[in-house]
Amino acid sequence: MLKTLKEIWEYRTMIQSLVHKDLRGRYQASVLGFLWTFIVPLCQLLVYTVVFSIILRSTVEKFYLYLFVALIPWNFFASCLTGGSSCIIQQQSLVNKIYFPREVIPVAYVTSSFVNMLYCEIVVFAVALFSGVQFNLLGLLCLPLVMAVEYILALGITMIMCSVDVYFRDLEHILGIISMAWMFMTPIMYDLSIVPERLLPIFKLNPMTGIVTAYRDILYAGSIPEMGNLAISFGMGLFFLILGFLVFGKLKRRFSEVM
């Protein structure tokens, strides 16, 4: 495992260039190009604002922001869960023809989605400032930590899913459903406080609960995140990451025979 990590480090330029290629290639042919990175979340925000402050009026104050700060990190996680699961298959021409540590592909995929989320976070920041959120300095300093926890979790899950998907392609479709269910089982559109007591243990076991709540604490409430739930998320993220490396390491040996 240590050897693999060292090798991935040696191939860091490849990761960089894959991320670069993905981010650049994403809006390559479009007129507005890179601006789309900001336009998409802004339009999302506009729709939510219209729906939740005019039609489906919520009791939560500034509900659009309440939702938005949680939705952007969720989108990152969901794209890893669904899109990331097919990342090896997407790159099969590379995998079949040339050697490089296979782990590079999921790492590059997750990193690229992560960078995309960072851009969206700029929009979140701007909107939060505009809405008059008073940021807590210590809270803001915790933000990179929260992002790191989410990155670890997303990478772990992606590594498991993308390696299994090579052998079992139904997984992509199954994950589409799981991702939807998971979204509603995570306090994104509602507050953890309205969840019935008997269901709480399930929510606590969901590693995304701690992460989403932490984002919201920092960017919506302007406070220091609640560390207990985040610690659980971190523990589970680490667990998935290690499991992901082990599963991936086992399954990668036959990638090019199966594809």
Binding site: Q16, S17, K21, Q28, L94, F100
Partner: peptide, 19 residues
């Protein structure tokens, strides 16, 4: 869609070369 120069970097990085 990328230039020859950019592709040199991508392609060489796949061989494990650093920048």
């Amino acid at each position: 869609d990328l230039s020859g120069l950019e592709n040199i970097y991508t392609n060489a990085s796949i061989f494990g070369l650093s920048r």
